[in-house]
Design a protein around this nucleic acid. Structure first.
Lengths: 330, 330
DNA sequence: ATGAAAGCGCTAACAA
DNA sequence: TTGTTAGCGCTTTCAT
């Protein structure tokens, strides 16, 4: 691999001349620039980014950490990030935080290989985040509730969305409503539950303990939750699944037992993943503005990078999407 | 940010001692190691990965380039990559190759910021790939047909899969079969077309020009293709959409016009994305082993990194998944 | 068991 | 307009 030194020798100039010539600095004469360019060409020289990063003490790179890439709307989030990052001359890279005790986390965050990061992963430990964040590494957390310096927050209005979709069920006349929750670490799961209970209280409806089931946001766990519900009749009149994945699991369990949605029981989810439009019946759910989440988070990251220290947490609006699964008003 | 030098001073030893002590080298006495560890602790020292990368001339990091992260089965691919990479002490990072003329591409590949990469993107230019690949940067291409040194190839058997699923349609008695192709740059699209024509020829069925339509693998283009077909009756007896996305577009167009699948017309896709199980009717398609694609590609990358120069291209088996959309044999 | 010193490839202040 | 030089933070011989 040719280095800048090789180019300098070949062109008969010093390294510094090559360095500045390559950034089209007008200080270097056009004729020498040409010679340098030829040397670059013939040697197949490409600058070593790592050396530059070390010298410059920054990488122009930011990371997005996702718990698993499979998440159904991550692509939109990442587009949002990418659009903003590129406009600042940054390239975003995406890494999964799972696997091998977070090798990628260590390597990218703890070892300074990126200038900042956006994190959407309930499982990354709070201590680690606090430790690693700093003036040279601002961190924007999505759907987390951690305070700390150089730690910023953006979230969707999970509570509001859950409140509204629960109100929708209540307005449809349902009272016996089951809730299938997410894993306890997930703040968004907790907020959705708060929204649910809030609406129930608002309508003066008591919660039934046996209708509160814990899942883990997987289709599997939705399926299991439906089994649990089925084993202890009578069924509730409606189910609010903490996310669409679990709602789809419920749907599968019900279709196996020929229980009709929404005729026998209404069902709503949360997230508005693409699949919800294609299930039978199509699923009523709550839409999160994922693209915007990405852009807003990235904008905050750049403000932090620019030196702004305190930035208020941002909460983005969600929107109830009514489809067939919650029944039709007659 | 504290550096190794700060730690050395604080602990009253030399930089080199700190360096080796930190990798638990037995040469350094336990008592000094303790002192060093304390210094690390109190200064909050974390090694600078970039400096190490520069010195070591490698990053222990590999990249996966995807055209867009949204791709429905990328997550499985990435899991496969991750599992193998981690076992080699590497962390994979994922980057989108689109946007801003491939800033990420430049930065990660051309500037040595990763030790190797896996590329799944028909749009990245062949020249760039050839130029950038080298002994210090092996590249594994998925679904591409580029020869070059330090360029390796893995692909699913698109042609075989397409052949088989077309045979399935033919065996169901269909003869007038339309094909909706992918964008011309995509080798996999071409191979699927080859498989299709191969099966048609095998059955001695002539292709009708008006039934060959070009799409671009988006749902949109499938919808448009269906419109085209509808505008020039009679309809074919079956449609082979080059991928599931387009098949879903076709389905949408047909449902709007109340054309029944498979009663009025049979339909098959390709890829076996998750959605195909949930469409109405469920979609017959061809399954690609995405996880395996990831593991195999990564293994090849590490063989190349270990010095193996010529590695034969690998082709992985695909499998026809028969569901309702292709009709039932009576 | 520890330290001194060179150097990875680049940039930028300062000199000439 | 170009060259000299120092140094980014680390690892690693080679001395001691």
């Amino acid at each position: 691999m040719a280095t800048i030194k090789d180019v300098a020798e070949r062109a008969g100039v010093s390294v510094s001349t090559v360095s500045i010539a390559l950034k089209r600095d007008p200080r270097v004469k056009e004729s020498t620039r040409q010679r340098i360019l030829e040397a670059v060409q013939s040697l197949g020289y490409r600058p070593n980014g790592i050396a530059r990063d070390l010298k410059m003490q920054q990488t122009q790179t930011m990371a997005v950490f996702l718990h698993d890439l499979g998440g159904p709307f991550y692509s939109e989030l990442v587009s949002g990030v990418q659009d903003v990052a590129l406009s600042h001359g940054y390239s975003p890279i995406v890494a999964c935080s799972v696997g091998g005790k977070g090798v990628a986390l260590e390597r990218l965050l703890a070892e300074n290989r990126v200038d900042g990061a956006i994190i959407l992963d309930p499982y990354i430990e709070e201590d680690f985040i606090r430790q690693v964040a700093g003036p040279t590494l601002p961190l924007v957390l999505l759907d987390r509730d951690i305070e700390g310096s150089y730690v910023y927050r953006v979230t969707s209005d999970h509570e509001g969305g859950a409140f509204n979709v629960t109100m929708h069920l209540l307005e449809m006349g349902h009272r016996q409503i089951a809730f299938i929750g997410g894993p306890s670490v997930s703040v968004d799961g907790q907020l959705r539950f708060r929204g649910f209970t809030g609406a129930m209280k608002h309508f003066g409806v008591d919660l039934e303990k046996r209708f509160m089931i814990l899942g883990d946001f997987t289709e599997q766990s939705g399926y299991a939750a439906a089994q649990t519900l089925l084993s202890q009749s009578p069924l509730p009149e409606a189910i609010f699944a903490g996310n669409d994945e679990m709602a789809i699991g419920v749907l599968r369990a019900f279709s196996e037992r020929s229980i009709r949605v929404p005729e026998d029981i209404a069902l709503v989810g949360f997230d508005d993943i693409r699949l919800t439009q294609h299930t039978t019946p199509a699923l009523t759910t709550v839409h999160q503005p994922m693209y915007e989440l990405g852009t807003v988070a990235t904008q905050i990251l750049f403000r932090a990078l620019a030196g702004e220290e305190t930035i208020a947490p941002v909460i983005l609006e969600t929107r109830v999407v009514i489809r067939a699964s919650s029944g039709s008003r007659q």
